[in-house]
Design a protein around this nucleic acid. Structure first.
Lengths: 309, 309
DNA sequence: TTGTAGGCGTTATCAG
DNA sequence: CTGATAACGCCTACAA
């Protein structure tokens, strides 16, 4: 492997000078620069990034903790992060947890070992306190609301989105709604919020009308079976468009009640259900910007309700 | 920052011994190991991965060159790669090119600078020769067929899939088919193959029935408008399910002809068009395995035709 | 402008 | 089993 030292020998200049042309520093005579570049080309010299990383103490690489890699919502979010990262010459490493605490902890340990210059957390498996303990090792940015001061986060205005969804239901005279959620309210703040607002806005809402652990189309089908056994249900809030599609399938013969979902994928357009676009790409972009600028703000991302009925 | 040397000082042992317990080497007395671990915990010592990377000459990180991050086909492929990488403790960095040659070259340069232990190329912007020039810097694995011996690749049996699609058309008496493709046949081997086989299998096929540069639902709608002006067209081969959906939209009032698409997404089930599942996840998994095992085989991934009509 | 020398933190070799 | 010591390849004061 050709090193900076060999270039120094062949050219007769010092390693410092070589390093300077490598880093586009000023204060190198045009003549020397030219010769050095020439010798570099001749020997096919490649600066070793691993060495550069150690020397600089950074790798221009950020980690992104996500629950699932094949989930439309998080895919959009990571796409937003990656788009910005690309602009600024950063590399992105996706860190899927499947909401496994141990796996997430392993990533946090890597982070503390300087594997990433920063860590964006789109959704967490461990309690906030556990994660914040790693703040001392470098910048941590969240893609959900975190109340603690000085903790940067870009977050979706879930409350506003839910309020709009529920008022849509009310406008259509749907007061008994079924809800599908991902993780149960015990561990997911987002589910917690959903149910809290449902109870506030819809006095007739019952917790027995909640189907938990829905992440796929199949889960949606199962949920539909359950909902059909509750004839009073006249509206459904789904936690994703693929699940909503499954619900419609599950109703098969029967006409399903009014459905509102939350991904705004193409399929919603064809199956004619309403959807909330939470703009996860924007959230990802903002999260990266917060990292890049080293700010500790909290940035809210507005949602958009797509009514179809 | 606490280093291995500080641990050595506080414990009175040598850095070698510290390094040994760090790497779970044998030949360290239980007593010393215990004391070292204790001091490490006290000082909250973190091994620095950047230093380890330099010392080992590797980073357990692989790069994956993809054209787009938000394309279902390549998302599935990268999911397959990531699943395997995760199992073996590798990190994955996604490298989107948008088929820009310069961007792709920049990634190859990074690779030659040891930024990645290996590079998986799911689809390339530059000519094969250009890319193979970087083989000397480390393992290069392709996710498409590469004829050159000793170049490892996991590839989809595109020919077989296309043959089945065309015989499906013939079975349904569709001999005048329209085709949408991504990149034009001049630059995409896959498009080239598609058109070649179309000409072989369907004597009535005309190149004027090809719509190029289709990547989105909107492109599909546009294509549909064009196809409707050619009343003789009685079958359509789409290059993706979202495009197929767009085509169906584009036909709006009119009933669209028999459609076969190529992603097998959920939407195909609802819009009732046939689709070829090329199993891109499997392709990604195999590609990673080829990297991991350092083999130079060529692995074919079988497809599956999902008939709906 | 340029060069010298030390440092980044860890691993590996090789004696003992 | 253990410990010096030399890599790994680059960057950067500091001095000239």
């Amino acid at each position: 492997m050709v090193t900076i030292r060999e270039i120094a020998q062949k050219t007769g200049y010092s390693t410092s000078t070589i390093s300077r042309v490598l880093n586009h520093h000023p204060y190198v005579s045009a003549e020397k620069r030219a010769k050095i570049l020439q010798v570099m080309a001749e020997l096919d010299y490649r600066p070793n990034q691993l060495a550069q990383n150690l020397s600089r103490g950074a790798s221009r690489n950020i980690g992104v903790i996500i629950p699932y890699v094949d989930n439309p919502f998080f895919e959009k979010m990571t796409n937003g992060i990656m788009a910005r990262a690309f602009e600024f010459g950063y590399k992105v490493t996706l860190l899927p947890t499947n909401y496994n605490k141990q796996v997430e902890l392993a990533y946090l340990e890597e982070f503390s070992a300087k594997a990433y210059d920063g860590l964006i957390i789109t959704s967490k498996a461990n309690p906030l306190k556990t994660i914040l303990a790693y703040e001392k090792y470098g910048p941590l940015i969240f893609c959900e609301y975190v109340a603690e001061a000085n903790v940067p986060c870009a977050y979706l205005d879930r409350s506003a989105a839910l309020l709009q969804a529920f008022s849509y239901f009310k406008d259509h005279h749907c007061h008994q709604i079924g809800i599908t959620v991902g993780r149960s309210e015990q561990i997911s703040p987002s589910t917690q919020l959903t149910l809290k607002i449902a109870q506030q806005e819809l006095p007739h809402f019952k917790l027995t009308h909640v189907v938990r652990d829905c992440t796929t189309e199949q889960d949606g089908q199962q949920a539909a079976k359950y909902f059909q056994q509750q004839p009073e249900i006249n509206g459904i809030l789904a936690n994703g468009d693929e699940i909503a599609a499954g619900i419609i399938e599950g109703y098969s013969a029967k006409k399903p009640p009014l459905i509102v979902s939350q991904d705004n994928l193409l399929i919603g357009k064809f199956l004619h259900f309403s959807s909330i676009d939470q703009h996860p790409e924007q959230c990802g972009q903002q999260a990266f910007d917060l990292f890049k600028q080293g700010r500790q703000n909290k940035v809210m991302i507005p949602h958009k309700f797509i009514a179809r009925s």
